[in-house]
Every structure is written in C-alpha cells, then in structure tokens.
Computed example of a mutant assay.
Amino acid sequence: MAEGGCALLVGTYDRLGGSGVVPLTLTADDRLIVGEPMSQARNASWWVPAGDLILAVDEQDQGEIAAFATADWEPRFRRSSGGAAPCHLAFDPATRKLAVANYESGSVTLFRLDEAGRPTRLGMALLTGHGPHAERQAGPHAHWVGFADSGRRLHLVDLGADRILSFTVDPERGLGQPATAWHAPAGSGPRHLAFLPGTDLAVLASELASTLTMLRRTGPDGYEAVQTLTSLPPDAGESLIGAILTTEAGDRIHVSNRGHDSIATFALEGGQLRLLGHVPSGGAMPRHLLLLKERARLLAANEEGGGVTLFAVGPDGTLRSLPARADIAGPVFLDRA
C-alpha cells in the first residue's frame, strides 16, 4: 500500500450486483482505489472481528454466520444464525458471547464462543408483535443488538413492533424473558441504537419516522425519552434513516437519510442534540457510514447507486463532499481492513 494510504473493506448485496467483500484503498491524496472482490463472502452486511477470525452475517432467508480468516478472508466455517435475514452482530465485552439479530424472522440468537472462536448456540428468543405500518411492521423485526451492564443484559431494537427489549443473559442458560425497556411511537420503526460513551445516554434512530430520540437509562431494563427531532430538513419528502454513527467522544452524530439521500450531522451539547447541517450523500440510498478520525474523512456506502463516496470532516464535525468515488455495486457495509 502507498505511504499514507488506508486499507478498507466494503460488504455488498448480491441482489444489487455485489460481488462479495471488496477491498478499497483510500490514498494519501484522497483517491479511492478498488481491489479484486472476494466472492467467497456474500451478502456480508455486518461483521465483527474475533481474534484471528471475522464473523459475518450472510443476509439471506436461510440465514448464516460465516467465519473467515482475518488475514486473507479465506472461509473457515459456517453456522446457522437461528433465523432468517440476519442483519446485525454484537459481542459481549469479554468477546465470549455473540448475539445475532435476525430481521426477517424477528428473532435473536445468542452464541457462546470457544477458544478457537467457534460459536455454539446458547439460547434463542422468537419475538411476537407488530406495528401499524402494514408493509414493514406485519411482524417483529430484530434490527440491532447490543450488550449492556458488562454483558449481563442484551438490548434489542425491534423495528416491527416499535420497541426496545431487554434480556438478562445467563452464562449457562442463555437469554431470560424479555422486558420492554422502551415503547417507541407507533409506526416509527426503530432501527439502531448508539450508546454514548461515559454517559447514561443513548441515541435511537427510527427508520420509518426519520427521527433521532435521545434516551436516558432509568434502570437495568428501562429508558426514558429526553428529546426527539427529525433527521430531515423541511419538505424533504419520503425518506428512511439508514445509518447512525457517533464519534469516539460522542459529541458528534452522523445519520444517513435514504430517499432524501443525504447525511445529517448533529452536535451533542449538554445532553441535547443540535442539527449542524446536511450534505448530499453523492449517491442513492446511503446505508452505512465509516469515520476515519485520523484522516478527518468519512465514507458513505450508497446501496442503490453511486458506490462509495468520500467526505472531509471539518473541525466542527460538518461534512464537505470530495470528488473521490468508488464504483462498487450494492455497497452496504464499510470497515477498516
């Protein structure tokens, strides 16, 4: 790699012309160079590192978790995700338990990892419920999972039934019965939750309503809403939130708007969010965002057209479009190599 370059990876969808996981290099002079696709990793819309392995979802109806060698993405093994269309993975702090959100089946599966990083199913919960949106909320849709309280609880965002659930995690018996930690407004379709470091606050991105809600934890199984605001400018038209990205310090939050095809930037000040502005995403349906702090750069994966686009991050956190663009079909996930 050229001096000053940054090695990246792009996960893609087959149905949108994707060809696996695609290497991408951001050069020191802000060019994007596309490498040869690794076709063995299909529909990898989310992945997490696990020592010498990378564990990725294979987002299909017969959902699977696929394991690859970190060094070269050579396949190692596959496991059923326990549901259909797995879309999100999360480790506990000890990297010994792995939770998987299965979107289409509305289920969550908990795995225990052995010393070699191989997952064994520890428990599963099949959700029930629905929301008022006839097409998108006919049943539960698990869209995000994350561990809390040093791994003793698992929180789940259910887009289909407008809620955040909280499960106790037993080292031997797996998941306890869920408690509803927060009821989202009916039809809002909560998608992703982002914990803010060093605080009792979290930001919830609701896909169908295109809103951000600042939440404060009120206890092990509870949240209360502090603030809700839109991610869109006035008269934006139909749009869906795609990604939520917080800075390491938690003082800036970036959100992608699919339909309006923009990225919104917010400042967090005194426990309240303040809109700093919007910038066009440079493509259609921006789904995922990646921040390169040391380079003051942000990348956006435009799922349905426009490939991967590049932005400069100003001192105040606002974004400026740069000319670089990577022509990659169906990009849905971005990560460092």
Rank of each mutant, 00 (worst) to 15 (best):
R121H: 00
L290D: 09
P119W: 00
A300P: 08
L275E: 12
N102M: 08
V100W: 11
L276M: 14
H133R: 12
F333R: 03
A236V: 04
T128S: 14
L193F: 13
L9W: 11
T265N: 02
N102Y: 06
V255T: 12
Q177L: 14
A94C: 08
R258D: 03
R42G: 01
R252A: 11
D149E: 15
L292Y: 02
D114I: 09
A142D: 01
S206N: 07
S210N: 11
T218S: 14
G83Y: 09
R252D: 06
S231E: 07
N257S: 06
W182P: 00
T120Q: 15
L175H: 07
I263P: 03
P185W: 12
I33H: 13
D251H: 12
L175V: 07
G11M: 06
A337M: 04
E36C: 05
G18L: 06
L232T: 04
A138V: 05
L299F: 06
A296L: 02
E224N: 10
E207S: 09
P49Y: 05
S262T: 14
T25K: 03
D58E: 15
G259K: 06
I244P: 10
A324S: 07
A85I: 06
Q177M: 12
T247G: 15
L273A: 02
V279A: 12
S45G: 13
N302F: 12
V332K: 04
G306Q: 10
D29V: 09
D149V: 05
G5H: 11
D14L: 12
T265E: 01
T211H: 10
R191I: 07
